[in-house]
């Protein structure tokens, strides 16, 4: 399964990058979201995966009796997901606003600030 997930990660990165290189702002945002997903999955995978062993201490015990999934990557991803939600929401609205003001979805028409 790890191989499959590794390929998935590669795909998410590649797709994300391909999308952020497009001219449409909407695609740009989707690309960033996919990249974020890819990074989260990478953390998850590299923290090693295991099935059916959630990091929750059993009801009647004070410590784990059995093997358990590494909780740290999960906590990191959780933080990362929430943060990227904030950033993505902001970026989506930015696109909306930019469309309102600049009247285009085409990034290549937005070059005035780079002119000398």
């Amino acid at each position: 399964m790890e191989i499959l997930l590794a390929i998935t990660i590669g795909l998410l990165y590649a797709a994300g990058i391909f999308l952020i290189l497009r001219r449409s702002m909407v695609r740009l945002i989707i690309g960033l979201i996919l990249l974020g997903n890819g990074a989260n999955l990478l953390i998850f995978l590299l923290g090693r995966i295991s099935k059916g062993k959630p990091p929750i201490i059993p009801e009647d015990s004070k410590v784990f009796l059995d093997a358990y999934a590494d909780p740290i990557p999960q906590a990191l991803i959780l933080t990362a997901i929430v943060i990227s939600f904030g950033l993505q929401a902001y970026a989506i609205i930015l696109v909306k606003r930019a469309y309102r003001v600049v009247k285009t979805d085409d990034i290549e028409e937005m070059i005035t600030t780079d002119e000398i």
């Binding site: 952020i20 740009l28 960033l32 902001y90 930015l94 696109v95 930019a98 937005m110 005035t112 600030t113």
Partner: peptide, 12 residues
Amino acid sequence: RAQLEGAIKYVT
């Protein structure tokens, strides 16, 4: 307008 145009690049 300039702010938004610049911001798109900055944010990305």
